[in-house]
Design a protein around this nucleic acid. Structure first.
Length: 769
DNA sequence: CAGTGAGCGAGCTTCCGCTTGACTT
């Protein structure tokens, strides 16, 4: 029997809809885009009307074949890809591939995935919106032109395999500029006065923590203030009470989920997305790549019921949130559990804790605001005119705080006080406090910033962050922090003492740092293509895309206007042969008299001794991980150039210490022995080297489990356990096999039975050699 | 893995945004 055919993007969505609609409907998924520009060529006719050449997305042949087969005997074909720009384009490509007339296609939009919403949508099909499709084509073509013309320029000017693009280059810029702000930051210090009191006549032992709003720049001023307080009597000057509300947070979008999972659970952006994907595929949450704060009516009712059941009517406050982020397309709902009764879900710890977070946030978003009472107590004394202030905060109605706490929601209790109450000073201190430099971006903080700028989409935040790290523009790392001394003056028992203490300042975990390559690439783009990496570039062209989508503008003309001046600058830069490698002359080598430079080399930052153009070829050495192009000294450069260095003889052959691609190593009789990373290579002498070789040889002998020299078969201990090596290939040993007891025959059998693998990865690697 | 960095010239690299599996000797 012929069935209705519905085409969606996500296989999970197809499954869900299938459950609602039953046997009369057949639901197929495109699994994302099915056609795109070719992977290798530009695929755009820039000489004419930027005609794009579309090819099937690699690996999508099966999907396309299934679509073609399914529609042959279909009663109706509904294209229900996501209701946004990309979804409209997918709908159009589907129509093209299926040879359907776009104006006759039944395009439907599911704004929420509930039975009623789906049936309602199916009842109101519309044609494909070609203007919206054109806006997507313009977006696609512009991104391809920028990426595929800028990147080759970088290969030529800086080094191979680099990349640039509308989104990634701005992300790198943000990180480079933040680092520059930190570098130019000069910490200032001032003395902060804090005091602890007890009510003079109260039985209660609740302390009052007060602070002086004013800070003292100089220590003697702070000391003079403490001195004046030494014999002072303290009184409550006045008590001010204010009622305030803390508003419930909106439900999660991709960006806010990444931020909160990072802050509360310490997940990286990609980790959060992988865990969320799992919850989505298991049907526990709605779609996790979304910029919408919208909750379906079904969801609102379900959340409300859950709140009322758990906390009572007073805690329910249903509401809809409006999206504030730039360029939001809102094709999906906010991220929420599919079933609010399920307060826990997932089959491992991390999945479960992410689900809990989503569940709590969804609850909180529909709960009442919290009522807090803030108290400010001013404290005067009889020896000077300054007022100290103590602040208290009490939650009088928790509202959403019942389920969702922010870190800053700490209560601070103050004892009951009234005007003119006497206070007893326990102690008062003046501590030198330093101003904080701007914080380096964490991954979620970078996503937040990108979202604010309207750069990137929920589906690309995580991949973009991994791209800029893969290209070597940015590294994620911890910083131990610097030890810093500060002064503390203490007034206690009528005496003032002073001491110098030490603290660790500015330690941070998992932050993003620019590399030398990232800085140089950014410098180049800033100098020649500032308009592309300008923070407003995307916002500007998004306006153009909107105009195209509304039929107010023609897309070829828009791209032409952008492309001609852009391409002219690309050509101009290609024509002048000068490199852009951040080269810096450090000085001259006192031994050879040659110049010493620091610059970006083929594989990263290097130092160079001598001239590239000279007959005698220059010598090179890579920088160490903690060294930087901009700050490297001549002395450090000469130390790097001291290798390879012969340090003596062993077993009749010379021993050489050198630094290569994978770090420092010792070379002996054409064998390489890596030097451990924590070891200073300057300290590696003959004795050291011999010891290192000894342990390396011992380890090597442990690696070999069985050896069958006639068959050229070895059983070795590897990273993933024992395996068989033969003729340049490795073979997995079947489970429950004792590797120690394998015979040559066993091994031959395993090799014979090994499945013939011919996947792309290994063939690509072979090609490389 | 393989221990570079010039230059020669071959062949390669590269974008953003939509969606999931493979595949971990």
């Amino acid at each position: 029997m012929a069935r209705h055919c519905i085409i969606v993007e996500s296989p999970s969505k197809a499954k869900t809809i299938g459950k609602y609609l039953g046997k009369d409907y057949r639901i197929l998924a495109t699994v994302g885009h099915i056609r795109d520009l070719p992977k290798k060529d530009l695929g755009i006719d820039t000489a004419h009307r930027f005609e794009p050449k579309y090819v099937a997305v690699p690996g999508k042949k099966d999907v396309i074949m299934n679509l073609k087969k399914a529609v042959q005997d279909a009663k109706d074909i509904f294209i229900a890809t996501d209701p946004d720009r990309e979804g409209e384009a997918i709908a159009w490509h589907v129509a093209q591939i299926l040879d359907l007339d776009p104006s006759a296609v039944k395009r439907v939009a599911f704004h929420e995935i509930t039975k009623n919403a789906v049936l309602e949508a199916l009842a109101h099909p519309v044609p494909v919106n070609l203007e919206l499709v054109n806006a997507q084509q313009a977006r696609r073509v512009l991104d391809r032109l920028v990426g595929f013309e800028l990147s080759p320029l970088l290969w030529r000017k800086i080094k191979p395999s680099l990349s640039a693009g509308r989104v990634q280059s701005v992300a790198v810029r943000l990180i480079v500029e933040r680092e520059a702000e930190i570098e130019s930051f000069a910490a200032e210090s001032a003395y902060r006065v804090a005091a602890r009191f007890l009510p003079a006549d109260a039985e209660g032992k609740t302390e009052i923590n007060a602070e002086l709003p004013k800070r003292f720049k100089e220590e003697n001023k702070a000391e003079a203030f403490l001195e004046s307080c030494r014999t002072a009597a303290f009184l409550v000057d006045d008590v001010e009470k204010n009622k305030a509300k803390k508003q419930a947070p909106p439900p999660f979008t991709t960006s806010t989920l990444q931020q909160e999972a990072g802050r509360k659970l310490r997940f990286s952006v990609s980790q959060t997305m992988m865990l969320a994907q799992k919850l989505y595929e298991d049907g526990h949450i709605t779609y996790m790549r979304t910029d919408s704060l919208n909750l379906s009516s079904l969801a609102l009712a379900m959340i409300k019921a859950q709140i009322v059941e758990m906390f009572g009517e007073a805690y329910s406050h249903p509401r809809k949130f409006k999206t504030r982020s730039k360029g939001a397309q809102e094709a999906h709902e906010a991220i929420r559990p599919t079933d609010m009764h399920l307060s826990e879900a997932g089959d491992n710890k991390n999945v479960r804790s992410l689900y809990r977070l989503i569940w709590k946030r969804s609850m909180a978003s529909q709960m009442a605001a919290a009522d807090v009472e803030r108290t400010k107590v001013r404290i005067r004394n009889d020896k000077n005119t300054e007022l100290l202030e103590a602040k208290g905060e009490v939650v009088t109605f928790p509202g959403f705080l019942k389920v969702y706490q922010q870190d800053e929601d700490k209560e601070n209790l103050l004892p009951a006080l009234k005007k003119e109450d006497k206070l007893t000073l326990i102690e008062m201190e003046a501590v030198e406090k330093f101003s904080q430099p701007p914080a380096r971006y964490s991954e979620p903080a970078l996503v937040k910033k990108m979202e604010e700028l309207g750069i990137g989409r929920p589906s690309t935040y995580a991949p973009t962050i991994s791209t800029i790290q893969k290209r070597g523009y940015v590294e994620k790392g911890d910083k131990a922090g610097e030890a810093r001394e500060y002064r503390r003056l203490l007034l206690k028992d009528g005496r003032i003492s002073a001491e110098t203490l030490s603290e660790v300042a500015n330690a941070a975990k998992a932050r993003l740092y620019p590399t030398d390559t990232g800085r140089v690439v950014n410098r180049f783009l800033t100098e020649y293509f500032e308009d592309i990496i300008n923070y407003n570039f995307t916002a500007g062209i998004e306006q153009d895309f909107d105009d195209i989508a509304e039929g107010k503008r023609e897309w070829h003309a828009m791209i032409r206007e952008f492309y001609d001046p852009f391409h002219a600058r690309i050509e101009q830069n290609f024509d002048n042969k000068t490199n852009f490698r951040g080269e810096r002359l450090l000085g001259t080598d006192p031994v050879s008299g040659k110049n010493v430079y620091a610059k970006i080399g083929r594989f990263g930052p290097i130092v160079q001794l001598g001239e590239v153009q000279s007959k005698e070829k220059p010598r090179f050495a890579g920088l160490k991980d903690d060294q930087r192009l901009d700050t490297l000294t001549l002395k450090e450069a000469l130390e790097l150039l001291a290798y390879p260095k012969e340090i003596g003889n062993y077993e009749g052959s010379p021993l050489t210490v050198a630094v290569g691609r994978y770090g420092p190593y010792i070379k002996h009789k054409s064998t390489f022995y890596p030097i451990p990373a924590n070891q200073d290579i300057a300290a590696v002498d003959l004795e050291h080297a011999i010891a290192l070789i000894g342990t390396a040889r011992e380890k090597e002998s442990n690696k070999l489990i069985r050896d069958f020299p006639e068959e050229k078969i070895k059983v070795l201990n590897g990273r993933y356990g024992p395996y068989i090596a033969h003729a340049g290939k490795n073979y997995r040993i079947p489970k429950n096999t004792d590797a120690e007891k394998l015979t040559a025959d066993n091994c031959r059998e395993i090799i014979r039975q090994a499945p013939e693998k011919d996947h792309k990865r290994s063939s690509a690697r072979r090609k490389k050699k």
